[in-house]
Amino acid sequence: MSQSLLLALYDKTDQAAQAIAGLSDIGVRDADVTVMSSVPYEPQMLGRRAVDGRLTAITLLGAVAGLFLGLFLTVGIYELYPLMQGGQPLIPVAPSLIILFEVTMLGTMGSAFLAFLVLNRFPIFGRPAYDLRITEGKIGVLADVESGQVFQAEEVLRQAGAVDDDVQTLESDRRPDRVSWLYFAGAVASVVVVVAVISLLFFYDVIRIPFPTQMAAQNSTAYVQGPRRAAPEAAVPVQGPALIAGQPASEPVPASESSLQRGRILFGIDCALCHGQEGSGDGPLAKYFEPHPPDLTAEDVQELPDDVLFLVLTQGRGIMPSLAENLSPVERWDVINHVHSLARNGSGG
């Protein structure tokens, strides 16, 4: 590459603008000229073209990415891992809007900063052409010219009134080291991706940690209460074994003949009025409710984990009331067994 780097400093904007115009006259391309200053001059002041608006475009992309991340946090997570709360919708609209807004803005500003770094190729490696006097208020004009043009360009730069009548010819390695920058950016990006993937593996049950909490057994001594005594062996809560996923008291009742029989009777009493005798959502009262009671034999209901169904029975959901006072925990498991048998009978027959 037979290019040479020429750097001249100027005291005044007029001189710098004259030098830039002169370089353009002798055929130096606009892209090969760089202006450096300690004050943000508008491009027009120096007769330069405005820098393109890629930063805004990247920021818009970042905003969209933030929006999708927000949707994942507010909708995706709860669709993947439903967290029922008595009488409340699974995905609350107003609070979700707050989270969506915040994460979108984080995406906007984070990507604006990232775009600023990437478009400028920051951090700059190597020893790019520079002069400390630029921070003192001088304007630096840097030209990357063909070797045939060097004398002509030097003359132009000097005539425009270069400080000390001096045009520095710099060695060709005085350009930003883009290769190191690529390595650096690649290394940072890989670290980010690896950390993100590993933490997601932990968070989303791919790598399982049993998070032992033993809350019930903790010997809590808050200052307003005495030590809580540990429950005796084999004790169960007065209302029967409650549901805590994976903990001993939460044992579902096996779908035995007697359990299914009990379930059928209880279903007829507590559920059939709305959900229908066959569970297909067409009970005598169904037409009075908007939304209609769901078809319990449908796949999306049947695929819910049993403990979620148990929570729906216990706490209610949407306009469905809680059945905790109508059904003891054992009876709730009977009904769940019966609901599953409805689907089997349905698809079988």
Binding site: V35, Y41, V51, F116
Partner: peptide, 18 residues
């Protein structure tokens, strides 16, 4: 590695506005 080139100033201005 800031040098105060036009590109740097322009991107800084846009980013500051955003």
């Amino acid at each position: 590695g800031w040098r105060g080139t036009e590109g740097e100033w322009s991107h800084l201005k846009t980013a500051t506005t955003i």
